[in-house]
């Protein structure tokens, strides 16, 4: 298969942009610069090959619809950061890893093998008490997000995770 390789300038440019965006949003790129550079190179290779930046460490199908959950940042980044301190390919890592308190270890694949199961997460949730994804509120700035756990840092005001509270939502239907 003939492919034009990303140039060093393209890699540097995307590396810089992703790093700035990560830091602005309370995330961190892997401090192992050699590894991060290779992962960024893989993203660019996938961009050229498929037209989107599929995870460099997963086998993309080439059908965008089928690959939506593994377009970087993938659907699995936040739970993997919570549980393993790194996303699947280790492009994104926790603060503890940035500080050198932990090492990056292989992250087991949490993406379901069965494509039908990947889509389940995207179906509307049943309106039952306790069902669905919890909503977290930053007590400092009011930022809201719906995910299993609050983010490590508020992407808006940079308040730490412990400043988040889980919201109890009441839905009032007007006539």
């Amino acid at each position: 298969m003939s492919e034009s390789l990303p140039t060093p300038e393209q890699i540097d440019a995307l590396y810089k942009r992703l790093d700035e965006e990560a830091e602005a949003g309370g995330y961190h790129l892997n401090p192992d610069r050699e590894m991060t550079r290779r992962l960024v190179e893989g993203l660019l290779a996938n961009q050229a090959r498929y037209g989107y930046q599929a995870c460099p460490c997963r086998l993309a199908d080439g059908d965008k619809e089928a690959d939506l959950d593994i377009i970087c940042p993938c659907d699995y980044r936040d739970p993997d950061l919570d549980e393993h301190g790194a996303c699947y390919c280790s492009l994104y890592v926790s603060e503890a890893i940035v500080k050198g308190e932990h090492k990056v270890r292989p992250v087991p694949e949490r993406r379901p093998d069965d494509p039908a199961q990947r889509r389940q997460a995207l179906k509307p949730v049943q309106a039952e008490p306790g069902a669905g994804v919890p909503v977290w509120r930053c007590r400092v700035c009011g930022y809201l997000c719906a995910r299993d756990n609050p983010p490590g840092v508020c992407p808006i005001c940079k308040a730490k995770r412990e400043r988040f509270e889980q919201m109890r939502l009441t839905v009032v239907l007007s006539a």
């Binding site: 290779a45 460099p56 390919c89």
Partner: peptide, 10 residues
């Protein structure tokens, strides 16, 4: 391996 994967290369 995958040609795009940093861990495969390592």
């Amino acid at each position: 391996a995958l040609s795009t994967c940093g861990w495969c290369r390592r």
